[in-house]
């Protein structure tokens, strides 16, 4: 990565980190209801991958999706307002934390059902192939989802038709409270596509430069018409699976060790300082990010609740006929 690219990556990762911290705060204050899965710790994955994209490429993921949205350039205020269930949210309060979209930014959701987005992402890749475009579908899923049957159905189809899809397994070690060792007979998940001849590699998902390098190899493979590519990102989430996670399945020491030794933002920061970026320059980025997040939080509280009629719209093209009883 060049100095400027790394600066940009630092900014983007920090934005995700601060956004998620703020979301956690708002949740604690009761301003966000229901489910909320924070991405803290995994920032390098989406930021590194996003740096490999060309206009028109697609991104799709599961429910731990706030980081992906911010990385695609979706506005923090629209994401935060969806978390608070307001009309200014990307789904106007209909979707919540797990269900947001942006056609403009090529973000195809935001899906609450584990693994279900993998076949959708394969369909996006089919469209790219069919249109003979250079575009690639970035299809993210967790190591927990990697055991879903439809993942392997998608692998087969993608390999058979040589579809341009990068399957990205974000292996943060825990599917909710079940560690990958207790859920998966396969331990090197990058080999999970081997039966179909899908090349795969394990990547240090805590290092944004390593992610970008691997992402570029994968994207080049897809754009050359060679079919799908599998990346297993070895990463880690610092927070619980969701906001109600008792986290008894791992030790505090384990989390602390990852934070201290492998934090993706701290690593990028050190690299920048070594490249003679000044503390003042980094401080300026910190301040900018803080301001954006604060503005998003304010907007998310000020944006009005959805109009009552909103309940009835977007079910079908035509408004449903139902008298309110």
């Amino acid at each position: 990565m060049t100095r400027d690219q790394l600066l940009q990556a630092y900014h983007d990762m920090l934005l995700i980190r601060r956004f998620e911290e703020k979301a956690g705060q708002l949740y604690g204050m009761g301003l966000i209801g229901g489910f909320c899965h924070l991405y803290i710790g995994q920032e390098a994955v989406v930021v590194g991958m996003q740096a490999c994209l060309e206009p028109g490429d697609q991104v799709i993921t599961s429910y731990r999706d706030h980081g992906h949205m911010l990385a695609t350039g979706m506005e923090a205020r629209g994401v935060m307002a969806e978390l608070t269930g307001r009309s200014g949210g990307y789904s106007r309060g209909k979707g919540g934390s797990m269900h947001m979209f942006s056609r403009e930014k090529g973000f195809y959701g935001g899906h609450g059902i584990v693994g279900a987005q993998v076949s959708l992402g394969t369909g996006l890749a089919f469209s790219n192939w069919y249109r003979e475009s250079r575009n690639v579908s970035l299809t993210y899923f967790g190591e927990g989802a990697s055991n879903q049957g439809q993942v392997y159905e998608s692998f087969n189809l993608a390999a058979l038709m040589k579809l341009p899809v990068i399957f990205i397994i974000e292996n943060n070690k825990y599917g909710m409270g079940t560690s990958v060792e207790r859920a998966s007979a396969s331990h090197d998940l990058s080999k999970n596509g081997a039966a179909w001849g899908i090349p795969g590699e394990q990547v240090n998902g805590m290092d944004v430069t390593a992610v970008k390098e691997a992402g570029e190899r994968a994207a080049a493979h897809c754009r050359e018409g060679k079919g799908p590519y599998l990346l297993e990102m070895k990463t880690y989430r610092y927070r619980g699976h969701s906001m109600s996670d008792p986290a008894k399945y791992r030790t505090r020491e384990e989390v602390q060790k990852m934070r201290e030794q492998s934090d993706p933002i701290e690593t990028a920061r050190k690299m920048l300082l070594e490249q003679d970026v000044s503390e003042a320059e980094l401080k300026k980025i910190d301040d900018e990010v803080k301001a954006v997040v604060q503005e998003a939080a304010d907007f998310a509280q000020k944006s009005p609740e959805p109009d009552e009629a909103e309940l009835w719209t977007d079910v079908l093209l035509e408004a449903p006929v139902m008298e309110a009883r």
Partner: peptide
């Protein structure tokens, strides 16, 4: 015979309580 049910929409997020057939709607029926 009257039915009081959820509406024919997907389950909404923010408008959960507009969807849920609560005691007021049941009472009216």
């Amino acid at each position: 015979i009257l039915r009081v049910t959820g509406w024919d929409t997907p389950y909404p997020h923010a408008q959960e309580w507009d969807y849920f057939p609560g005691p007021d709607r049941v009472g009216r029926a």
